Simulated scan of single mutants.
Amino acid sequence: MYTEIEQQNLDIDWFFTDNNEIAFVASAGGKLPETIAKLGVENGVLSSYFKGLPEISEIIINPQLKDIIPDVNEAYLSDFINMAKKGIYAFDKTVLNNFFDSNYHLVVNPKTPLKLEDLSSDILEIILKTQFDEKLKNTKRIDISNFKK
């Protein structure tokens, strides 16, 4: 379980699904969805699993990213690009240092998304705990208040 203090002070990597494809989010000190806050150690299992996957996809950097973050650079993009190359959509917190702001933006998406059917059963069981109601392929922004409880 992640406490609110941990959530406010850490940049926690977390994952969710649209019940078909997978996304990665960097929390940047933001409030986590309830399902992620409850995961605790299991979230670390997801993070290790996805970071260890091979690259399977070319990527597309969000063409509107410069409008959201004017000084985008390679150092900023690095982790997001690494996840997208594994077939995972990559999102970042839009308003930094505002714990209660629940908005995130797409940074990079994969051309060839990783599918739930490609996951092992133990990973599938964990990621299905955090589901998003919209299709990732059509999503440029997310609001974590829209996650299923």
Rank of each mutant, 00 (worst) to 15 (best):
R141W: 09
T130Y: 08
I36N: 02
D133H: 15
K85Y: 09
Q64A: 14
A84S: 15
G44K: 04
D143A: 12
D13G: 15
Q7W: 10
K140Q: 12
E125C: 12
A75C: 06
S27Q: 02
N82Y: 03
K85A: 10
K93W: 02
F132L: 07
N97E: 05
G30H: 00
I59S: 01
S145I: 07
N109C: 12
N103L: 08
G52T: 01
I61R: 00
D133Y: 15
G29W: 02
A28S: 09
D11F: 05
V72E: 00
I88P: 06
D67V: 11
K115M: 15
M83S: 06
K85L: 10
I142C: 05
A23I: 12
I123G: 03
Q8N: 04
D122H: 10
I68W: 04
I69A: 05
A23Y: 00
Y104S: 05
S120E: 11
R141L: 14
W14K: 03
L116D: 06
P113H: 10
Y2G: 03
Y76N: 08
I5C: 10
L53C: 09
V95T: 11
Q8E: 12
I88E: 03
I61S: 01
A37I: 04
E4Y: 10
P54K: 15
V25Q: 01
Y76Q: 05
T112N: 13
M83Y: 09
A28H: 02
S120H: 09
G29S: 07
E42I: 11
N73A: 08
F15N: 03
N62Y: 02
L96Y: 06
V107K: 06
E42L: 15
D101K: 02
K51G: 10
F132N: 06
E4N: 02
N9H: 12
I127T: 07
D18Y: 05
A75W: 11
N146M: 13
E58A: 11
A75I: 11
M1I: 09
S78W: 07
V108A: 14
P113N: 06
I88G: 07
L32E: 04
L53H: 13
V95H: 00
L10Y: 08
G52R: 01
A23W: 00
L136A: 04
N73W: 04
Y76I: 11
S48F: 06
L46T: 06
V95Y: 02
A75D: 14
I126Q: 02
S47A: 10
I81T: 05
G29M: 07
T112L: 14
S27Y: 01
I69Y: 10
D92N: 15
N73V: 10
N98K: 08
V107C: 06
D101A: 01
Q8K: 13
P54R: 15
T3S: 14
S47R: 05
K135I: 14
F24L: 02
N43Q: 11
E58N: 14
N97C: 15
S48K: 08
